[in-house]
Design a protein around this nucleic acid. Structure first.
Lengths: 228, 228
DNA sequence: AAGTAACCGTTACCTCAAGTAACACTTACC
DNA sequence: GGTAAGTGTTACTTGAGGTAACGGTTACTT
């Protein structure tokens, strides 16, 4: 018997953490470069910003769209870190709505350049196969649909329309957010409250038309998680 | 006095109409090429589709983004041709809402490829200075803000929030439309009615909270035009 | 101690699509 | 007949994404 069981060469494992850290580093460099030189930076710019030459970049990212995707995932992280708790939080429905909306607005307020960069997506030339923005929206919409469905069922209504509802809500908040981000003519708190009011009224109206008298302070017992 | 007043050389005027027609022709070719080869066609493809070589294309469009813009304007035209009447139409508010929503949905239903091409905007590499989609959305939102403002004033309410409202509505309908366009799980009429119900309830709720008893059948007298 | 698998990094190149130069032909106004 | 607009072509330049080929460093393996 020649050798013991072929354990994986430790040299292969040694860098596992390092590689990830390096990728994160380049993602940060991209964000910084975008902040400096606008959204149409090139790979050379990013490499320069990271203090490195292009081929190094390509050791860590297969191509431009891979880098874009990584930036998108970073942004998703920032978003979900705040949206998650807001979506999962229990409590009176009217408060939940406002908290969710405000969580979203706070993220784009704190990272306007990153937000625009990711959403515009003009960094990648060819259409990218994995649409980060769409995925995020879908994830949030799915979660919302569950909340809405549960709420409707709590009042013994048909919850069938929860899905279009959820997508409508997502688009509504996003577009209002875009508008607000460009010309900041009102405070974030004001807009959150305003949007929450609209949303609550729409829900309330649906319930009324189903013959239910809703209570904006009614708490829902089941907390919801963001992902299955 | 050597000669009469220097009339413009007729040779310069002779082509005026022709040039426009030619541009339109290339716009159509672009749309056709996109339908055939997907959204990431090149200028060569477009030229080939038009049965012509690249430099000819560049005699009519300064660059790729100019062509994209022209396609966008064509799409705007299609959109406004249906949205305009719907926005301008007089009548009970609930019906107006549904008609506006349905007008929008009918356009994207009839031209899904064109719609996606223009909205995605991956045809242009560098970010284009004039954002057709944003302009359309702003135009519609502005018009909506006027309708809402007028409606609110009719009930003697403060019409200050009409603008965020309008942008929220635009985003709502667009995103719900996108969702519907991808997985067509319900009829257009159903979705229109559904969205209109949501919107109406939201408006109604606002009015209620202002102590007004609204009537969904109340007509507004002033018809509104799309542009100033 | 020697070998090697992973990384570090560079300069110089390839490729492909956008956009241009240069050239030749056609039409109809002057 | 001259000329200002258009018709069109092939062959080129340019710029950014992406790669080849080279050499150095670290630390695990034998």
């Amino acid at each position: 018997m020649a050798r013991t069981v072929k354990g994986p060469d430790a040299r292969r494992e040694r860098w596992k953490g390092h590689r990830e850290q390096r990728r994160a580093e380049f993602v940060e460099a991209t964000i910084a470069a975008v902040a400096k030189k606008g959204p149409d930076v090139g790979m050379d710019d990013v490499a320069a910003e990271a203090g490195v030459s292009k081929p190094v970049l390509y050791r860590h990212f297969t191509d431009k769209s891979d880098l874009y995707l990584a930036v998108g995932q970073k942004a998703t992280e920032l978003l979900m870190d705040r949206m998650g708790p807001a979506l999962a939080a229990d409590g009176p429905i009217r408060d939940r709505i406002e908290r969710i909306v405000d969580a979203y607005l706070s993220v784009i307020e704190d990272n306007p350049n990153l937000y625009r960069f990711v959403v515009k997506g003009s960094f990648v030339d060819r259409p990218v196969e994995k649409d980060v923005v769409q995925e995020d929206k879908d994830l949030i919409a799915t979660t919302l649909a569950r909340i809405l469905g549960e709420y409707m069922r709590a009042y013994e209504m048909d919850s069938g329309g929860a899905e279009p509802w959820a997508h409508a809500l997502v688009g509504m908040v996003q577009n209002a957010g875009d508008w607000w981000l460009d010309r900041q003519t009102m405070s974030r708190a004001n807009l959150s409250s305003y949007l929450a009011t609209i949303i609550w009224h729409a829900i309330d109206g649906l319930l009324r038309s189903a013959g239910v008298q809703a209570d904006p302070a009614m708490p829902l017992t089941t907390p919801l998680r963001l992902v299955d």
